[in-house]
Design a protein around this nucleic acid. Structure first.
Length: 504
DNA sequence: GACCCCCGCCAC
DNA sequence: AAACGTGGCGGGGGTC
């Protein structure tokens, strides 16, 4: 009970007018918390003041919302429903043949009974947090798929799940004015990232996990055009800079800044390939197949990211669907190429074991309450070093854009390492994007004098999806979208195609 | 019917 | 043996 009230209450008093008293107590708790926060977050508290400042752009985006093409959305729902119904009819025919009753593809319980009891297939167990589980996730179902009599059933189940997930998003309630309003939580994460969710009125949804293929339903306001700027290789560069500052080892940041990190990594990990030194030749070599559908470059990209974050060969081999031995060798060679990475891991372990605390170059600290010797704690701390500065960098840049360009641009969305805004089509597009790209950069200087910044990459268009590449055949990975976002190269010769936002 | 947890799965 | 991190959502299925 808050101290301020204890002397006012006698034992047993809460039994009487308890609701009013509880209410009073709650107010007192709030007051006591406020007093403590006042003490902690004084004028010197950089991060606290920063978070408060971010309320401006956050509230503006939340109140404005993102315009949705209702026709596009409804026709998407209709098309998906049709496909789902068709697939479901097929599934139910199988289900009745096998066990004489329906099967819900989203029910883990029913799927277990169906495959392991009715179809008598061998059980596939996985372990999560030390607990063995009879999962029915995609990975498990793909293992069941190798049995020929299960193959068509599994394929249908996975397809239904996939399409249902897409339909869920399209079915999210849009406000009466045809705009989707998300709720951004500025201070909801451990790292300084924002989170996003449905809003206080129950409409909208998380706008930070919309699959790329569905983004084209979000469109620019009439007379406005969308620009998106993302920070290139942001988390990798943050770690590269940290390694340089801590150890004077700039090899990883050099690789990031060299232009093509993943090809560079591939050259270091597989030095015996016929590298020429010519950038496009070497990229072509890196894009040759290494294992199954993975090129050397793919392996470098996905394997590098996982390895930076202390992923084990076992887990990464599962994720990349390659044998464990492949990942063991990859990591050995990767650590050989960038010795600052394992050194960085050891440094983080030392820090959390001695201080249980880390602070980024943006001044954001985090206490680690997990057991200091636990790998889980170490992994959280390693991830913090990349994720947190990226979040602060993007948000600081966004705040600067909002402050300086607030009359010229309308902020539209924030997606962790990318910010989207709109500008008037009659305005000087090149000048606006040039200035925004300048503001996105937050230079830092290492104690040794090296200047470090993360460049932004801009895209422009009239809807949030990616434009199709006209020089490649249309297909599932190149869907027709002439109004979509294209990479900004100083100009954009296109004009908005009316009615074509509506093509799904 | 409200509530809750688990599961599977989407993003960066 | 098996945990790369940060999040949010909807459905299933249980309890009250």
């Amino acid at each position: 009970m808050p101290e301020v009230l204890t002397h006012l209450l006698q034992p047993g008093e809460l039994r009487g007018d308890s609701k009013q008293i509880y209410n009073g107590l709650d107010c007192c708790v709030t007051f006591e918390v406020h007093s403590e926060l006042q003490r902690l977050f004084n004028a010197e508290s950089l991060i606290y003041n920063f978070e408060r400042a971010l309320q401006g752009p956050a509230l503006e985006m939340m109140m404005r919302g993102f315009r949705v093409d209702q026709y596009e959305r409804q026709s998407g729902i209709a098309a998906l429903t049709k496909s789902i119904d068709k697939l479901n009819n097929v599934l139910q025919r199988y289900a009745h043949a096998v066990w004489g009753k329906p099967l819900n593809p989203r029910s883990t319980k029913q799927l277990q009974e169906f495959f392991y009891s009715a179809m008598r297939m061998p059980e596939i167990w996985i372990s999560q947090k030390g607990v063995r589980k009879l999962s029915m996730n995609r990975e498990t179902l793909e293992k069941l798929e190798i049995y020929f009599h299960a193959m068509p059933i599994v394929a249908v189940i996975l397809a239904i799940r996939d399409l249902s997930k897409k339909r869920e998003i399209l079915e999210t309630e849009v406000d009466a004015d045809g705009r989707m309003r998300t709720s951004y939580n500025i201070a909801g994460t451990e790292t300084g990232r924002w989170s996003s969710s449905s809003n206080a009125f129950g409409t909208g949804t998380n706008l930070q996990n919309i699959p790329p293929r569905l983004r084209k339903i979000f469109i620019a306001d009439d007379g406005w055009k969308i620009c998106g700027i993302d920070l290139e290789q942001a988390e990798s560069r943050e770690i590269g800079f940290l390694c340089g500052v801590l150890f004077g080892d700039w090899s990883y940041l050099d690789a990031c800044e060299g232009g093509d990190l993943h090809t560079t990594t591939a050259k270091l990990v597989w030095p015996h390939l016929a590298w020429t030194g010519n950038r496009s030749d070497d990229r072509a070599i890196a894009e040759q197949i290494f294992y199954r559908e993975f090129s050397y470059r793919d392996m470098s990209k996905r394997g590098g990211h996982g390895t930076n974050y202390y992923g084990t060969p076992w887990t990464m081999s599962r994720h990349l669907k390659v044998p464990v031995g492949v990942m063991v060798n990859f990591q050995r060679d990767y650590f050989g190429a960038y010795p600052c990475i394992p050194r960085f891991h050891r440094w983080v372990a030392q820090e959390i074991q001695t201080k249980q605390y880390l602070e980024t170059f943006f001044g954001r600290g985090r206490h680690f309450f997990g057991r200091p010797n636990d790998d889980t704690t170490l992994r959280e701390a390693i991830a913090y070093c990349g994720q947190s500065p990226t979040a602060d960098r993007l948000n600081l840049a966004m705040l600067n854009i909002w402050k300086e360009m607030g009359t010229v641009v309308r902020l539209t969305a924030q997606v962790h390492d990318a910010v989207y805004f709109q500008y008037r089509v009659e305005d000087d597009e090149a000048a606006i994007i040039k200035r925004a790209l300048e503001l996105i950069q937050i230079p830092m200087t290492s104690p040794s004098g090296r200047v470090y910044t993360i460049p932004g990459e801009a895209k422009v268009g009239w809807n949030w999806g990616n434009a199709h590449n006209p020089s490649k055949p249309l297909g599932p990975n190149n869907e027709f979208n002439p109004n979509g976002l294209t990479k900004w190269k100083g100009s954009d010769a296109r004009t908005r195609q009316s009615g074509l936002d509506r093509v799904l």
